[in-house]
Amino acid sequence: MEYYVRTELLGKAFPSEKKGGDDYVVFEDLNVGIRKGEFVTCIGHSGCGKSTVLNVFAGLEKATAGASFLGNRVIESPGLDRAVVFQNHSLLPWRSALKNVEFAVKARWPQWSAAEVETHSRKFLSLVGLDKSVDRKPYQLSGGMRQRVGIARAFAIKSELLLMDEPFGALDALTRGVIQDELVRIWSHTDQTVFMITHDVDEAILLSDRILLMTNGPRARVAEAVVVDLPRPRNRATIIHEPKYYATRNHLVDFLVRRSQELSDDQAGSDARTVPTSVDGELVYPPEIIPGESESANLTAAMAAQC
């Protein structure tokens, strides 16, 4: 299996509040795959279950069907091999920025001396540009700085998989842009596998290798995986001049505005048009699309993805 992190026929349903009513199925038979070292984002409307997928990867939420894997291991509970950046930063408010990072580092390497823990933590705080604010408590930091501490904490434990749930959702546009650039820079120096959830199309293009597009819930599915065929290193200022930038952007916006709903309706209306999730016992992962390439090239890519 080429995918390093993946779900296999994952399902999440909530029991009906009415007795005897149908379960509310957020998604079912969901196949999501992420290759080693890949930066994958997931875009979809609220309620499609993308946060649930992330929480299942994190081990914080249990799916009701299927399984998820990290390498050869089944994901069953949270662990240090995965780091999570939460939307609301989730720093411990009684600890300073440094102590928050040290908290994670100490948990990751309990055998380290206090000095080692501090040096390592300071290094990652300075990577996000917080050298001068390490002793401040979270409430003394701006929203952007708090999120930076959260990112530093996540990178510091050098996990195999970094999970980010709308990490910049609560930030203003200017701050968001600055931190996105920082994230690209830090990530490019690591071989970290990242799965990130976002609502922001430009953010997804800037950061991702591939973008998973989810149809609207209930019974959401990943319609396709858009390959962002733009050269790295990228930055916000120059990326918009890349030839394929607008093709990619238009494809994403078109999906979010129009197709996410249409595909969802299609699926609800007739089972015949449902894309199979497994063929002859082989799991089918979403087709990979390169916006701006010809239809046939995409078809080839889609075929390749299914092997």
């Binding site: 081990g59 662990g79 939460f86 609301n88 009684w94 908290f103």
Partner: peptide
């Protein structure tokens, strides 16, 4: 819930979670 989740992702033992996260909170 977030603080508990942090403790979980860092694989803290129940005792560590109680003393280092829940108690100060």
């Amino acid at each position: 819930r977030d603080y508990i989740n942090i403790a979980k992702t860092l694989e803290l033992s129940p005792m560590q979670t109680a003393l280092q996260v829940i108690l100060p909170a």
